[in-house]
Design a protein around this nucleic acid. Structure first.
Length: 257
DNA sequence: ATGGCGGATTAGATCCGA
């Protein structure tokens, strides 16, 4: 079973690339972020044609998350995070697929910092941590995956100095991320690439892709029940170099049955 | 130190992202 996450940066603009990736790599489950569409605009029929069923949680213009599964409909277990009734941003969707609980996460960017957007990011991370503890207690194989918008350590960015003031690598952002790891969640990519140097995002600007100026912000956090079954992880880096690509790459982990 | 690129939106300038 392969579980993947992909911030696609617009499902309408990216649909041909997304279909291509699904057919070429055939993940069992794909969590998408930044679908940037309202619910009624979600192209479910296009996925059904190639054998994927989906659930989605969108809004107009930006944000939005979805979960696709190969040959089976994801059974929704949670839509949005509790803890702030005024929060209307579509950033969290969770479902059961073939005995595994999967969450598609689009964590707030938080720039500029300091400021209200950074405060929202940190509050959202605390809400995620609280919810993750209830998932932990259920003892179901669980994968919390998506665009966390956190560069965990300096080894996860091409230039720590260039990004020093960015919300993605502030101490408060990192502390909130490592709080979840201290709760027991396993960072799948880091576990199998402990020396770092693995990127999942390259900016469209300033020739970042051509210069390999990237960083790692798309993460797969695994419960022990799932981490014990992990056999491989990967980044589908080649897709970043194709025409009309997202600025993120797909990231995945493979599990024994 | 700045801007750059790209998607989306009552369509042309602006917000948002990272």
């Amino acid at each position: 079973m392969r579980i993947a996450t992909f911030n696609i940066n617009g499902i309408k603009a990216r649909l041909p690339r997304l279909i291509e990736w699904l057919e070429e790599t055939r993940p069992s489950v794909a969590c998408l972020q930044e679908i940037k569409t309202q619910d009624e605009g979600f192209p479910a029929d296009d996925f059904a044609k190639i054998g994927y069923e989906a659930i989605w949680h969108g809004q107009k213009g930006f944000n939005g998350v979805a979960i696709l599964a190969d040959g089976v409909k994801p059974v929704e277990t949670q839509r949005g995070l509790s803890g702030d009734d005024s929060d209307e941003q579509a950033r969290y969707l969770e479902a059961d697929v073939n005995g595994v609980r999967v969450a598609s996460i689009y964590l707030p960017n938080g720039n500029p910092q300091p400021g209200p957007k950074f405060d929202y990011k940190l509050a959202w991370m605390e809400r995620l941590r609280v919810h993750a503890k209830t998932l932990w207690d259920a003892e179901i194989p669980t994968a919390l995956i998506g665009d966390y918008n956190v560069i965990p350590e300096d080894k996860d960015v091409w230039s720590p100095a260039a990004m020093a003031n960015d919300a993605l690598m502030q101490p408060a952002s990192r502390n909130a991320y490592f709080a979840m790891l201290s709760d027991g969640w396993t960072d799948a990519v880091n576990t199998l690439n402990p020396r770092g140097g693995v990127w999942t995002f390259w900016d469209y600007q300033a020739g970042a892709w051509q210069r390999d100026h990237g960083f790692r912000i798309d993460h797969l956090l695994l419960s022990p029940e799932l981490a014990d079954r992990m056999t491989a992880v990967g980044v589908d880096k080649e897709y970043r170099g194709r025409e009309k690509s997202s600025d993120h790459t797909p990231v995945w982990a493979e599990f024994a049955d």
